[in-house]
């Protein structure tokens, strides 16, 4: 018993020790980049078509292309043309701590800018607006959320869709069985295996998942959008100098048509690894965003 108590106390105090290392002095991101002669970008493994690995195992995507524009702006600003770019793979659980502890300077993937996250990290200007909809099998007879009564629905754990579908289920008493899978790939697998009638997620990501299917034309994106979300790049909270630079790079691309061209490249043309076309036309929200770049969260 005595040993146990010692163990317990020791354990709890180890948990708290990270406080010792957490008191680093705040250094601006640009200074940090200059000193390290390198910028660390957080990338995703399979956020198609925002940030993912292609067949050559290189990180590509819409967000990655925009991040490259930011890197170019940093090089110009610091006058360091041979600045090293470190690509650090992150997950939805690691991305916020890695920004906070300085392991990455900028995260460019598919991260929603919302009020909860804004308390922890900073967000750049929005580079994409998605709406949450459904992916269903062709001929399943499901055209909208009201058709889901009594059905199994899969969502990816921790997404806004998870919260929205639970709320819908409670409010309208739809008796849906909600499955929360670990990541988007897993959710789609559950949909494909016939365990769920629909998969709810951001439409752009649904299009990306559909592109991975053996036969993409078997799957349809349907339903009234339940919410809109603004994707931004994450950076350290309160670093106004770096944020201004990132914002300017994104806003310029959105105003001068570069972003529009990138949109054509990633959403309206064949993309790696399989050469599929996501076929997701530019939405009105995106058109408005490109005319009027901003960093407002939509929820």
């Amino acid at each position: 018993m005595k040993q146990l108590r010692v163990l317990l106390v020791g354990f709890i105090s180890t948990l708290l020790v990270p406080g010792l290392f957490g008191q680093e002095k705040e250094v601006g991101t640009l200074e940090k980049i200059k000193e390290a002669r390198a910028i660390a970008i957080g990338t995703r493994e399979s956020s198609i078509p925002f940030s993912y690995y292609d067949e050559k195992n290189e990180v590509v995507g819409f967000a990655q292309d925009l991040a490259n524009l930011v890197v170019a702006a940093v090089k110009k600003k610091l006058n360091m043309p041979d600045l090293r770019v470190k690509l650090v793979p992150v997950t939805s659980q690691t991305r916020i701590p890695l920004i906070q502890n300085g392991a990455i300077d900028l995260e460019a993937g598919s991260t929603t800018n919302n009020l909860e996250r804004e308390q922890q990290v900073g967000f750049s200007d929005t580079f994409f607006i998605v709406s949450t909809r459904l992916l269903v099998k062709k001929g399943s007879g499901i055209n909208d959320f009201s058709d889901l009564k009594g059905k199994n629905v899969v969502v990816t754990a921790g997404t806004t869709s998870e919260r929205l579908i639970h709320a819908l289920n409670d409010q309208k008493q739809m008796q849906m069985q909600i499955i929360a899978a670990k990541d988007h790939g897993e959710s789609f697998l559950i949909l494909q295996s016939g365990r769920a009638a629909a998969f709810m997620l951001d439409d752009a990501l649904l299009a990306g998942e559909r592109a991975k299917a053996r036969n993409p034309s078997d799957w349809l994106i349907v339903g009234t959008p339940q919410s809109k979300e603004a994707y931004g790049m994450m950076l350290r909270k309160g670093d106004t100098e770096f944020k201004a630079l990132v914002d300017e790079a994104i806003a310029e691309a959105e105003r001068d048509g570069t972003a529009q061209k990138l949109y054509q490249k990633w959403f309206m043309s064949p993309i790696p690894p399989k050469g599929l076309n996501l076929n997701l036309p530019l939405s009105d929200d995106m058109k408005q965003l490109f005319q009027n770049p901003n960093d407002k969260p939509l929820q």
């Binding site: 659980q93 996250r117 922890q120 921790g158 897993e186």
Partner: peptide
Amino acid sequence: ASTIGYVELAQRSASMADTTARIY
């Protein structure tokens, strides 16, 4: 079992971390 969507502790803490952005 969290990988197949079983709603156990690890999955729920990850889910909570994602929705609240309070990872620690």
